[in-house]
Structures are given as structure tokens and as C-alpha cells.
Amino acid sequence: MKYIYTIGLLILSNAFMTLAWYGHLKFFNKDGPHGTTPLWAIVLLSWGLAFFEYCFQVPANRIGSSEMGGPFSLVQLKIIQEVITLIIFMIFSVVVFKNMQFTKNHLIGFALLVGAVYFIFKG
């Protein structure tokens, strides 16, 4: 069950992280209705969203860490988090930035990451 909790919390964490890091590029762009919003306000808004990222990330790492009785080593937690980050980012890019197109190079890169996951978990 700790596997599921860890991965679920990491997915939630990464959704907030992606929105905090990249959402302002869409929702506060120079041509939009909020194009004159000061940078400090955007930073504060992003920081507020990042707070929720941490509310999910920290418990995910504590629940999932083998040092805390969880099923994953530190390296395994990190590689899971990175793969989830890329999946969430791909979905976010396609849904929010509708002009994003993924090429075969992207797919090859993601396949190599899946290979990295395999080797991290094999060892």
C-alpha cells in the first residue's frame, strides 16, 4: 500500500510543481489579460502553489523511503519522481500549451528514461 500512497502523492506534488513552474507562462503571458502583472506577484503566486507541492512531496518521500520503513531506496524515489515529473509535464504541455508537439526524439528520450528506471530498480 505504501507504493500506491507514495506514487499518488508524487503525482499530486508534481502537478502543483508543474503549475507553479510553468503555469505563469500561459496564464500571465505578455499578450493575455494579466500581461502587466508584476513579476514579484507572479513569484509569490508560484511560491504559494509550490507550498502545496511540498505538502505532498515531503509525505511521499517519508512514506516511500526505505529509511522510514517504505519500499523504495533514495535513488529509486528520485527516479520515480523524475519520471512522474516528465509525464505530468508532457500532459500539461499538450493540454495547456496546445501548440506543443512531441517528436520521435522526445519518444526516444523517454524510452531511454524507462531504461534508466529498469536499471535503477534492477540493481
Score class of each variant (00 low, 15 high):
Pro33Thr: 07
Phe72Cys: 10
Leu45Lys: 05
Phe119Ala: 05
Lys98Leu: 13
Glu67Val: 12
Asn61Val: 06
Phe119Leu: 14
Trp40Glu: 03
Ala111Asp: 07
Ile80Tyr: 05
Asp31Thr: 11
Phe52Asn: 04
Gly69Thr: 08
Asn105His: 13
Leu107Thr: 14
Gly8Tyr: 03
Ile84Asn: 04
Lys122Gln: 14
Asp31Gly: 09
Phe119Val: 15
Leu45Tyr: 07
Tyr118Phe: 15
Lys30Tyr: 10
Asn14Trp: 02
Met100Asp: 06
Phe102His: 14
Asn61Asp: 07
Gly35His: 00
Ser65Phe: 02
Asn105Asp: 14
Leu9Lys: 01
Gly109Met: 10
Gly8Glu: 00
Gly8Pro: 04
Phe119Pro: 01
Gly8Arg: 03
Leu44Ile: 12
Thr36Ile: 10
Ser13Tyr: 04
Leu113Val: 15
Asn61Gly: 06
Tyr22Leu: 13
Gly32Glu: 07
Asn99Met: 15
Trp21Thr: 09
Ile88Val: 15
Met68Asp: 08
Gly32Phe: 05
Ile91Lys: 01
Phe102Tyr: 15
Ser66Phe: 07
Gln57Ala: 13
Ile79Tyr: 07
Lys30Thr: 13
Ala116His: 00
Phe89Arg: 01
Gly70Phe: 07
Leu19Ala: 07
Ile11Met: 02
Lys122Ser: 15
Glu67Gly: 12
His34Pro: 05
Ala20Ser: 13
Trp40Ser: 11
Ala15Trp: 02
Phe56Ala: 10
Ile87Tyr: 03
Asn29Gln: 09
Ser93Leu: 11
Val96Asp: 04
Pro33Ala: 12
Phe92Asn: 05
Val75Tyr: 06
Tyr118Gln: 07
Thr36Phe: 08
Leu45Ser: 01
Gln76Cys: 13
Leu45Thr: 03
Ser65Leu: 11
Val43Leu: 12
Asn14Gln: 14
Lys30Trp: 07
Gly109Lys: 00
Phe28Cys: 09
Ser13Gln: 05
Phe97Arg: 06
Ile79His: 05
Asn105Lys: 14
Ala41Gly: 08
Lys26Cys: 04
Val94Asp: 01
Pro38Ala: 14
Phe97Asp: 06
Ile120Gln: 01
Leu9Met: 15
Gly35Cys: 11
Tyr118Ala: 13
Phe52Glu: 05
Lys78Pro: 03
Leu9Ala: 04
Val58Lys: 00
Thr103Val: 12
Asn29Asp: 13
Leu86Gln: 07
Ile84Trp: 04
Trp21Gly: 02
Val96Ile: 15
Ser73Asn: 10
Thr36Tyr: 05
Ser66Cys: 10
